[in-house]
């Protein structure tokens, strides 16, 4: 770095210093409403003294999920954004190829009224939909828990069983294999067809591959993310649909809209 470089660096430093001084002045003017950002203290995997989560290296855990205490996640399982898996008073174990979708909550109970110990066990290739709540229950292999379903203490979902979306399953209910239960409280709705059973394992497989894409993207470090941002900005083009949705400009002129099929 030559003399010129040093001079530039010094000038840059002055500008930044002035900027910070201005920032402090602005904060002073805002009085007690000023906000100073701290580094995020969120921890994806958190241990409680000796109870530490164990996650397989091929599993995907979203950075905004939080796994606390005794939580075991098997290979190629995926824990999506905003999930909370809390194994504090008991253990939570998740098999392989299972997906726990966004904003779900998995918790355990120390014991229920009958004194039964209730860890949460989730088997292999299970699909748990968005925002589901699983509390001290057992979900066997290739079961399906729909969006927004709530499974209370001691519930057992057998292999190939399905809990419909928005269902609330009362404590100590056993959902037999190949049946669909739904409603509040959950009742037997119908038997599953063979293709629907096939769909459950298919959906788990789809999610496992989708998780790989998300895992790769989330594991990128800061420099790579910034580089890609620059590359993306370079190749950015005007989106004709954007104006259309705003209701301005109507249809994009045909010479701009190159990738759309020609109107006959």
């Amino acid at each position: 770095m030559g003399t010129l470089g040093r001079a530039f660096y010094a000038v840059g430093f002055w500008i930044r210093e002035t900027g910070q001084a201005l920032d402090r002045l602005g904060s002073r003017l805002q009085g007690s409403y000023v906000f100073q950002e701290q580094l995020s203290r969120h921890r994806t995997l958190m241990n409680l003294f000796d109870k530490a989560p164990v996650v397989d290296k091929n599993a995907f855990v979203a950075p905004s999920a939080s796994l606390t205490g005794e939580v075991y996640v098997g290979p190629s399982s995926s824990i999506w954004y905003g999930c909370v898996l809390r194994g504090d008073v008991n253990s939570v174990s998740i098999g392989s190829g299972t997906n726990i979708q966004d904003n779900s909550l998995v918790h355990v109970a120390k014991s229920n009224l009958a004194g039964k110990v209730l860890p949460t066990l989730i088997g292999d290739n299970v699909t748990v939909g968005h925002s589901a709540v699983l509390h001290g229950c057992t979900v066997e292999d290739e079961a399906f828990v729909g969006m927004g379903a709530t499974l209370l203490d001691g519930v057992v979902v057998e292999k190939h069983a399905m809990v419909a979306a928005g269902a609330l399953v009362r404590p100590d209910t056993r959902i037999p294999s190949g049946e669909v239960w739904g409603g509040n409280p959950a009742k037997f709705l119908r038997k599953l067809k063979d293709d629907e059973i096939a769909f459950i394992s298919q959906s788990a497989a789809n999610y496992a591959s989708l998780a790989q894409v998300h895992a790769a993207e989330n594991a990128k470090d800061f420099d790579k993310v910034e580089l890609e941002k620059v590359l993306r900005k370079k190749s950015a083009t005007q989106d004709g649909e954007y104006d259309l949705n705003l209701g301005v400009g109507g249809e994009a002129p045909p010479e701009l809209n190159t990738n759309a099929p020609k109107a006959s």
């Binding site: 995997l45 164990v54 894409v213 993310v225």
Partner: peptide
């Protein structure tokens, strides 16, 4: 159940916080 093998470079993806915008492909 399969034996869980922990990732040796967990720190790389843990403790980093969530990005708001995640481009895929």
């Amino acid at each position: 159940a399969p034996i869980i093998r922990e990732s040796p470079d967990r720190v790389k993806w843990d403790y980093r916080g969530q990005r708001k915008i995640i481009p895929l492909g």
